[in-house]
Design a binder for these strands. Structure first.
Lengths: 193, 193
DNA sequence: CAAAATAATACGATCGTTCGTACTTGTCAA
DNA sequence: TTGACAAGTACGAACGATCGTATTATTTTG
């Protein structure tokens, strides 16, 4: 009973890494089998289709994301410290994966590819944006932000900033990207105080 | 002499559309042949490798981008009006393509795929960022922005905003995205006045 | 007619998937 | 305690399709 779970876990770990490098759509069952030193058919048996494999990779990544980005941020003091922690964690998350955040790359990959994978991805993105909004709400609650702010607007601006960092970090190798992001974040938050 | 050019142009047009839908790496010679009602080999003869095809698609897109985004913005009055025009044009550019801006999707596609394609892409991104900086410089020149601003920082923030719009537009179907982007742009520019 | 443009055909590789088959487990009746 | 049996797990081989590419023919054009 436990053997299968272990193997699957290992496959998903390798799948996550491969996704980050080449994108979710380019993760091939053959290549993943080679990376895990398994046979194509043996690996395939754990999922029943490539679509399922993609979805399971996304769900696995979401689990890790929650654990290493969201939960620890909720440990931080509500308000601006929590926002800073969340951004910090997100940047660590995106930097640790070889090719950047897989949700970002998968989102562009599947922007025009209808199907279950896209639906899963879409819900995950919505949950992430909800998370950004709730964190702004708690900042209002503790008085770090004023009361009449637009949560949607805040989430949009903060997420944009992370996406900008992501592209700069993965494509251009500008050394000052981190500084730009910090400056922009400070200004962003100033607008909501 | 002219027949070949015409055909190539038609292929690149179809290739651009396909790239926007499925991403540059998933544009297949077979699929592109089918879309243009040509034979695989006939199409292939115009490029000598898939890598060349990808590069030519990117260059073709860059030509169109310059024509429909950058040049008309330079017609606008320098300063804030020109920035607004550039953003407006970029959004139209990204909205007209079925699956969004191909430079954005290609950048995430090739973030971890070394080779000539990535190099071309990287240079195009740098040129775009240069363009954003120059437009900020002209805003300083006409007095719309103050003199001690950081051009790198401005480009980073503006590009981030566009990337945020891009993800919201292609993935989520939020009706208020446009409004969020406009609000954010106004605030962004306020910070540099 | 020569040259340029397109097609036909074929290549080895890999794609996602299916099938039959081993080898390992754990369960339960004898 | 053993033996039979089901379930779980992995494998090799093979399927038709498609991948990128090369060679060779045919058509179209100037």
């Amino acid at each position: 009973m436990t053997k299968g779970k272990d193997t699957k876990h290992m496959i998903l770990e390798a799948g996550l890494d491969m996704t980050s490098k080449v994108g979710l759509e380019s993760v091939t069952i053959g290549a993943l089998a080679k990376a895990t030193k398994m046979s194509k058919s043996g690996l395939f048996a754990h999922f029943q289709s490539k679509e399922n494999l993609q979805i399971e990779i996304l769900n696995y990544a979401a689990h890790l994301f929650s654990e290493s980005v969201i939960v620890p941020a909720l440990m931080a003091e509500a308000g601006i410290p929590r926002i800073k922690a969340l951004v910090e964690n997100w940047i660590r998350w995106a930097s640790e994966l070889t090719g950047g955040c897989i949700f970002v790359s998968a989102s562009t990959d599947f922007s025009d590819r209808p199907g279950k994978v896209r639906e899963v991805l879409l819900q995950q993105q919505n949950e992430w944006i909800d998370c950004l909004q709730r964190i702004a709400q708690s900042a209002v609650r503790v008085g770090d932000f004023r009361e009449d702010i637009d949560y949607d607007q805040f989430a949009f601006e903060l997420y944009s900033l992370l996406l900008g960092f992501h592209l700069y970090y993965t494509m251009l190798n500008e050394s000052e990207t981190r500084k730009h992001q910090e400056t922009a974040l400070d200004r962003l938050m100033d607008n909501y105080k």
